[in-house]
Computed example of a mutant assay.
Amino acid sequence: MLDPKAYRDAMSEIASPVHIIATDGPAGLAGMTVTALASVTDQPATLLVCVNRQSPSAPRFLKNKAFSVNSLGAADQKLADIFAGRTDEHFAEKFTHGLWRKGATGAPLLEGALANFDCRLIEAKDVGTHHILIGEVVAVARRDEGAGLLYHRRAYRRSDDEL
């Protein structure tokens, strides 16, 4: 069996865009920083995101059946840290940072994000330690300017920096 640390070390060599996923609904408000995200198809527009099952926020994403993906700009490192759990703020407290509005699904959308994807959860699959959340995108918004925030070799970088 492959050593999990060796796998994580190898994955750290892949520069990944940084996103905040967020949800709100009957189970309550929650959000977290993620890098494990991929487009599935554009007809219908669908994406997937991976969430650790041990996260206290994970059940809220499943029960609310809606989530947003908010792609962060280079200036959003502080927000990325807050939603990654590197502060003592939890659940709704995290949303006192940044400007948020409700999307069509009820999921919070970050004003000023490089891109917003408002998603309806259509499937969740457990693989290993994570839930794979598959969302049908019901609305998008994007900004035409600004560098993106990347995570590479366990550090934040700007998308316009040399890696």
Score class of each variant (00 low, 15 high):
residue 2 L to T: 14
residue 135 G to H: 00
residue 4 P to E: 05
residue 115 A to R: 02
residue 98 G to H: 07
residue 19 H to Y: 10
residue 60 R to V: 02
residue 141 A to S: 13
residue 75 A to S: 02
residue 21 I to Q: 04
residue 69 V to P: 14
residue 113 A to P: 11
residue 40 V to N: 04
residue 163 L to A: 15
residue 8 R to I: 01
residue 73 G to H: 15
residue 30 A to P: 09
residue 5 K to T: 07
residue 129 T to D: 06
residue 105 T to H: 10
residue 65 K to A: 02
residue 99 L to D: 08
residue 130 H to D: 03
residue 118 D to T: 12
residue 151 Y to I: 08
residue 160 D to C: 05
residue 143 R to H: 07
residue 53 R to F: 02
residue 101 R to Q: 10
residue 59 P to S: 13
residue 26 P to R: 10
residue 127 V to D: 02
residue 11 M to Y: 05
residue 118 D to F: 08
residue 1 M to G: 15
residue 68 S to T: 08
residue 140 V to W: 08
residue 98 G to Q: 02
residue 160 D to Q: 12
residue 100 W to G: 11
residue 94 K to N: 11
residue 150 L to N: 07
residue 102 K to I: 05
residue 82 I to G: 14
residue 11 M to H: 00
residue 17 P to Q: 03
residue 16 S to D: 01
residue 159 S to L: 06
residue 135 G to E: 06
residue 71 S to C: 11
residue 7 Y to G: 07
residue 141 A to W: 07
residue 35 T to H: 01
residue 157 R to S: 04
residue 26 P to A: 15
residue 123 E to A: 12
residue 54 Q to W: 07
residue 86 R to H: 10
residue 102 K to M: 06
residue 52 N to W: 06
residue 110 L to H: 06
residue 1 M to E: 09
residue 18 V to M: 04
residue 41 T to L: 01
residue 95 F to S: 11
residue 120 R to Q: 08
residue 52 N to M: 03
residue 21 I to D: 11
residue 90 H to C: 08
residue 108 P to H: 03
residue 123 E to C: 07
residue 87 T to N: 11
residue 17 P to V: 00
residue 32 M to R: 06
residue 136 E to V: 00
residue 144 D to F: 05
residue 79 L to S: 11
residue 89 E to K: 11
residue 84 A to Q: 01
residue 86 R to A: 05
residue 117 F to M: 07
residue 87 T to L: 01
residue 28 G to P: 14
residue 50 C to E: 01
residue 26 P to H: 13
residue 31 G to T: 02
residue 10 A to D: 01
residue 113 A to C: 12
residue 110 L to S: 09
residue 127 V to G: 00
residue 117 F to H: 03
residue 72 L to Y: 08
residue 39 S to A: 02
residue 154 R to L: 05
residue 45 A to D: 08
residue 159 S to R: 01
residue 137 V to D: 00
residue 47 L to V: 14
residue 137 V to E: 02
residue 138 V to T: 15
residue 79 L to V: 00
residue 1 M to T: 09
residue 94 K to M: 08
residue 46 T to V: 12
residue 50 C to P: 04
residue 11 M to W: 06
residue 32 M to V: 11
residue 44 P to C: 14
residue 146 G to K: 13
residue 115 A to W: 14
residue 32 M to G: 05
residue 89 E to W: 11
residue 95 F to H: 10
residue 128 G to D: 07
residue 80 A to Q: 13
residue 60 R to P: 01
residue 50 C to I: 06
residue 34 V to Q: 12
residue 124 A to L: 04
residue 72 L to K: 13
residue 143 R to K: 12
residue 147 A to Y: 09
residue 11 M to I: 09
residue 72 L to I: 11
residue 60 R to H: 00
residue 133 L to D: 05
residue 139 A to Y: 03
residue 129 T to Q: 15
residue 9 D to Y: 10
residue 96 T to K: 15
residue 84 A to N: 03
residue 104 A to D: 08
residue 89 E to R: 15
residue 118 D to N: 11
residue 13 E to H: 13
residue 49 V to I: 15
residue 126 D to V: 15
residue 110 L to N: 04
residue 63 K to Y: 06
residue 54 Q to M: 07
residue 163 L to P: 11
residue 145 E to G: 00
residue 45 A to M: 15
residue 68 S to M: 14
residue 88 D to Q: 15
residue 27 A to M: 05
residue 52 N to T: 09
residue 75 A to Y: 01
residue 46 T to D: 02
residue 116 N to H: 04
residue 29 L to G: 12
residue 24 D to Y: 09
residue 3 D to H: 07
residue 78 K to I: 05
residue 107 A to Y: 14
residue 57 S to Y: 13
residue 89 E to S: 03
residue 133 L to Q: 01
residue 85 G to Q: 00
residue 99 L to I: 15
